[in-house]
Simulated scan of single mutants.
Amino acid sequence: MISSIKSQIKYLFAQKSLIIQFTRREISNRYKGSYLGIVWSFVTPIMMLAIYTFVFSVIFQARWGTDEETSKVEFALILFTGLLVFNIFSEVVSRAPSLIIANSNYVKKVVFPLEILPIVALGSALFQALISYLILLLAMLMLTGTFYWTALLFPIILLPLMLVSLGLAWFLASLGVYIRDVGQIVGIVIPALMFMSPIFYSRSSIPESFQFVYSLNPVTYVVEDMRSAIIWGKLPHWDWLIIGTLIGLIIAVLGYIWFKKTRKGFADVL
């Protein structure tokens, strides 16, 4: 079993040039034909941040947890960090059910590694997240005059969520070929999960009876650790990082195995 996993990792690693090529194409195609091009990668998160901040902190007069002294600037940064994390998960999982269908021309090419398509989707989402991350750091410096070295732990904190997203993407990409309704179901689940994650509110404001439900949500831990590291300069919860990474690895491996087992029937269905 372990030797098989190692061989598959080597196989995927051998496809790195193809993955990079497809990721670049994915990013360029996203803004192909637009006047601003890749500038939209900067404009979009800034505009969404402004809209969400205005709605929640100005119209709804929301505050973070029980802290009445949270300024609108700090609220905006807290909100932006949560959305940055969730958008990675959301983009990868939302696109997963249609990945194979949208690339059906590659299915009958025996030599083409379909397994890389979820990795490409993750790479594209991480590119957008990196831009949002740089915007967040710049906003921290300009608006609060602070920068914590713990913000550099960004990729380590994201690792569990990246693995979970990739595992789910492999599973849903395969399932979406056989059951086309999967895309519609995911489209309903993702917004529900966003509001079931502590993005627009603090976890401390969640009733005790619902705390257990939130503890099962992997997005919760990553969002909280990311805020602690970037905004408040605190170290992440290392115990969660270790456990979360192991859980993420299990989900990624199971998702990959499922994909490999079921891909043989793609050509018959498509």
Rank of each mutant, 00 (worst) to 15 (best):
A50H: 00
A129N: 00
Q184S: 13
K108M: 10
V92W: 04
L18T: 03
S204G: 01
T81Q: 06
G187Y: 04
L216Q: 01
T70S: 13
Y221R: 12
G123C: 06
L84M: 15
D268M: 11
V43W: 01
F195S: 04
P118S: 10
T53E: 00
L143H: 07
I157F: 00
L77A: 08
M226E: 11
V111G: 00
S3D: 01
I156Y: 03
S71G: 10
D67Y: 05
T220I: 13
V111I: 14
V177A: 07
P207L: 03
P160Q: 10
T81L: 01
V213L: 14
V93I: 11
M142R: 12
I101R: 11
S204C: 01
I27R: 07
R25F: 00
T53C: 06
Q61Y: 06
K264P: 09
L193E: 08
A102C: 01
P207N: 02
V223Y: 10
T23G: 05
A76Y: 00
W240Y: 09
D225V: 14
T150V: 07
T146D: 07
I188D: 05
D225K: 13
P160M: 10
S7A: 13
L152Y: 05
S90K: 15
L168Y: 09
E115V: 15
L161Q: 06
W170T: 15
N103F: 00
G123K: 13
L153D: 02
Y214K: 11
T220Y: 02
D67K: 12
